[in-house]
């Protein structure tokens, strides 16, 4: 039962991540995604300090604000200060992340449930203890119930705007030419990313999120030609990695969330090794 719950919780983080990842990879925004997942930390901390709970509503606001702040700051540095992109990203997220860690160290007392380590690793094992039970029925863990609406929203956003996403990713000039609000697409993506980062940081931590974002998408990209297939494969790879990660973690008794990323990484490396075979299959 616990295993199932753990797999479901992991999947609820991994599925939206792998979908978001496809968009990030196809638009070369991976490091911006990484930056956002670091930079939501001060938002989380402020929300936590103000509200005194890890309740999700204030946190979502904190996340949305810091998410926007991050993209705004990166853009500002690049456009107004003409700072090259890599340095602008590097500055923004290290600054915001350091701010968050300092706030934890100074304001959040020893006995609070927000500490540096949990921010880094996340803790899937304890996050499944946070169960939602109504009557005598178990509805799921809090993480699942929080991430499920996000996943559904994300799916709707992707499916409804599919053509738009395609244009956004591969042909933005054409998009603004025919009147698709390219900027709006980008903002929606960043918003969803920040929300995802906040909701998942308890389970996987802020640093591993980027692994869940980029690895399934990069693996999927090795095998698929179209955007739709890439989404599908990426989600599947995300799920498979969660299942393997959970069992592997139980088996050798180590922390599960890094293991899930490791399995993802392994699949990615394997996909590159078998790439030549794939080619020969296609040409024959």
């Amino acid at each position: 039962m616990n295993d199932l719950l753990m797999i479901l919780t992991a999947c609820s983080v991994a599925i939206p991540a792998s979908l978001l990842g496809v968009l990030l990879v196809s638009k070369s925004l991976v490091m911006v995604g990484d930056a956002i997942s670091h930079a939501v930390l001060p938002g989380i901390v402020v929300a936590y300090l103000l509200s005194g709970t890890k309740d999700s509503v204030p946190m979502l606001f904190g996340a949305a604000i810091t998410g926007f702040l991050t993209t705004f700051l990166i853009d500002f540095l690049r456009k107004k200060w003409r700072i090259q992109e890599d340095a602008a990203i590097g500055f923004t997220f290290t600054f915001l992340f350091a701010l968050g860690v300092l706030m934890i160290a100074i304001f959040a007392g020893k006995n609070s449930d927000l500490d540096q380590e949990c921010v880094l690793y996340g803790d899937l094992e304890t996050s499944i203890l946070d169960q939602v039970i109504v009557g005598s029925y178990l509805y799921g863990t809090r993480a699942i119930l929080q991430l499920l609406p996000l996943t559904i929203t994300l799916l709707i956003v992707i499916i409804v705007g599919f053509k738009g996403w395609k244009v956004w990713a591969f042909n933005p000039q054409f998009g603004s030419f025919i009147g698709i609000p390219i900027q709006a697409f980008q903002l929606v993506l960043m918003l969803l990313l920040s929300i995802h980062a906040v909701l998942s940081f308890e389970s996987v931590g802020v640093i591993l999120v980027v692994g869940l974002l980029v690895l399934p998408a990069a693996t999927a990209l090795q095998f698929s030609g179209t955007l739709a297939r890439t989404f599908l494969y990426s989600a599947c790879i995300g799920i498979v990695s969660c299942v393997f990660g959970v069992f592997l973690g139980k088996w050798i008794n180590i922390s599960i969330s890094p293991l899930i990323v490791c399995v993802n990484g392994l699949l990615f490396l394997i996909s590159i090794f078998v790439l030549p075979f794939k080619k020969s299959i296609r040409s024959s």
């Binding site: 880094l120 690793y121 591993l208 692994g211 899930i260 990484g265 490396l269």
Partner: peptide, 21 residues
Amino acid sequence: DTIVAATLSIFFALGLAMLSY
């Protein structure tokens, strides 16, 4: 950027896994 992020997360996850071990 994809390559850098992929490498970063694979190694870091491996490190965390070993640390937790």
